[in-house]
Design a protein around this nucleic acid. Structure first.
Lengths: 171, 171
DNA sequence: AATAATCGTTATTAATCATACCAAATAGTC
DNA sequence: GACTATTTGGTATGATTAATAACGATTATT
């Protein structure tokens, strides 16, 4: 059902190329233009690379960055409930349910009804969860962050981290 | 298109949860733990903020960061086809179709059959597209990037950009 | 001429992200 | 104590983004 649009919508002016297109044969590299100056663009590309590397480094444990951050936060903040953990990570409560279902089904954490407020579920890691988290931390430190240190150097890595924190906070 | 999420304040308990339940009463901020040292985490949070701000700054033109980057690239690289542009931006060709449909329906760009290779569609901006792009660039420069310069300072901003480019390249 | 590769495209699935709403429990108010 | 409002976890649902397989048309390779 295609086959009809391209011809009509005529831009009044091609700007550079002739009338009806004639891409010269040579293929030089595409110019990024102002794109390389766009912080958001570089930020996103870098973030995707880093996440890919993270997943690769921790692949043996089958943990996503998000799952890792949840386990970390639960471990560091015993006695907190779902909304507290979810909010801290910027995860919406409805979306946090499936995430916890998954972690709980893998026996990495548990929900326990709070005695004080029987609406809320206190989160805590299982022994298994603590073990997996410890392994994950080790993999992240020795493989993932180590590689970052190689590429950036410790000083730059620290500076980068500081600036990102500034952005996430003051922006 | 509302754009508010962001975490709220949290309150609950400090201590250490024993075996089963019983969160004491009082609050205390949630501890981020090793999370604040995780480059990937900070990177993602910062990226989300920056994108939100970008969208806000250019809201009057109704352009997403992705659309802006496409327009920019087409403008800077006349005579290129869809796959070239898409690949450069890390967009998969199938997903690029809808994106171009949208931009073309808004008369910001056009697909033209190449004379050399009748399979491919050469992309180019319309006059309208060039106008919108120019306006977008101005908004981005005077509002978005200007704000970044305020928060980070020009030197830091440049350093940050450099490191992100390094990551996207050498990582 | 036959086969393989490329380009734009459709269709489809998965993963992320967001909103509205509900029952149960709690907090506040009168 | 009764009434209302709010909070918590949850369901259902929709929008957006991302990924894969396959197809017709065209070009490249042999």
């Amino acid at each position: 059902m295609t086959g009809s649009r391209a011809a009509e919508l005529n831009a009044s002016k091609p700007g550079k190329a002739g009338d009806v297109v004639d891409d010269h044969e040579e293929a030089g590299q595409i110019k990024m233009g102002e794109l390389s100056e766009l912080l958001g663009y570089s930020l996103k590309r870098a973030q995707l690379r880093i996440f890919d590397d993270f997943i690769r480094c921790v692949a043996s444990l089958n943990l996503t960055p998000a799952q890792f951050s949840v386990l970390l936060l639960i471990d560091r903040n015993p006695g907190r409930n779902q909304t507290e953990i979810a909010n801290t990570l910027g995860i919406l409560r409805p979306n946090f349910v499936a995430m916890l279902d998954s972690l709980e089904s893998r026996e990495l954490c548990v929900r326990v009804r709070s005695a004080n407020d029987r609406r809320s579920h206190i989160l805590m890691l299982t022994d298994n969860g603590r073990t997996i988290l410890a392994r994950a931390k080790k993999l992240v430190a020795t493989k993932h962050e180590a590689r970052l240190n190689e590429v950036l150097g410790p000083a730059n890595r620290a500076a980068l981290l500081g600036m990102l924190a500034t952005l996430a906070r003051d922006f």
